[in-house]
Design a protein around this nucleic acid. Sequence first.
RNA 1: CGCGGGGUAGAGCAGUUCGGUAGCUCGUCGGGCUCAUAACCCGGAGGUCAUGUGGUUCAAAUCCCAUCCCCGCAA
Length: 305
Amino acid sequence: MKVLFMGTPDFALESLQAIYEAGFDICGVYTQPDKPAKRGMKLTASPVKLYALEKGLPVFQPAKLRNEPEVLEEFKALGADIAVAVAYGKLIPEDMLESVPMGFINIHGSLLPKYRGSAPIQWTVLNGEELGGVTSMYLAPEMDAGDIIDMVSTPVGEYETYGELYDRLKVIGAELLVKTLKSIENGTATRTPQDPALVSYAPPLHREDCPIDWTRPARRVIDHICGLAPKPAATAQFGEETFKIYAAVMGCETDLPAGKIVEQTKHGLAVACGDGKSIVITELQAPGGKRMKTADYLRGHKISN
RNA sequence: CGCGGGGUAGAGCAGUUCGGUAGCUCGUCGGGCUCAUAACCCGGAGGUCAUGUGGUUCAAAUCCCAUCCCCGCAA
């Protein structure tokens, strides 16, 4: 069974690595074109590309998939029996989906049909879900709407960040992919349509989603911080400065109005929230500075509002 | 050559504008006080001020030049 892989960031790399090590015959790897990124705008190759090159797998980086006959021909010529897309970064057009005999499957970072879209793991944490997970499914023309093959759930920790859950799910997702491919290969895979009544969406997050709303209950503020850490990171304004907030724990009761600093201790910075409780910020980053423990920051700075 | 911030003791910072004794808050080590302590008091150790044994100067953390590394924005 020849497998074609499409993916871009480290989340996808984990899956590629897993199927490579599981011995699947990988006939091609698609990934996003190298892009100028970071300081200095240097051209940067994706983690998936670097790995594929290292293993001698053929790499393809088309800029566009839709309405590109040559790209489709090249794709078909690889003769894949099955194709896998994991965090590839482009919607795959219908004619390409249909050109693969055994189907085009996908690993998604949520328990579908919840959290369709590009930021499922963030929204799982942002909404304080007790369970997160990954789903394997057949791709459909509509985003994340395909029939479900299999899924694995995992409890979300009390203070688990998006980044931590992401790292766990990429491993679980990679295992699920291998299992799913094997089940398709030996014919035991099932397909279950998604229940339209349960569908929800996880839209991409933007800068305006970052500022903390202190009028919300403390637990919700913590979810907000965890769901955005480490990127793009929740933000809070104290005095003139806007800080990125990376970690916080539940504090104690307080009479102070929401957003006011309750106290500064060696553990962190306690701030009042909307339900009469506070949270203690334990890790933050000032403009131009490094990310550090709040206690470290307070040794050299004062914070007030 | 995308824009900006930064590198000073183990940690976090001030000092750089206007060159002139290396400072602060912690930590650490020793001692004291205390029923006790993460509290308080006293004392000590710990720095090639990122690198170039670079330039200017009587004198450079500070001014000039070059390089390296880190961070944010933007993508």
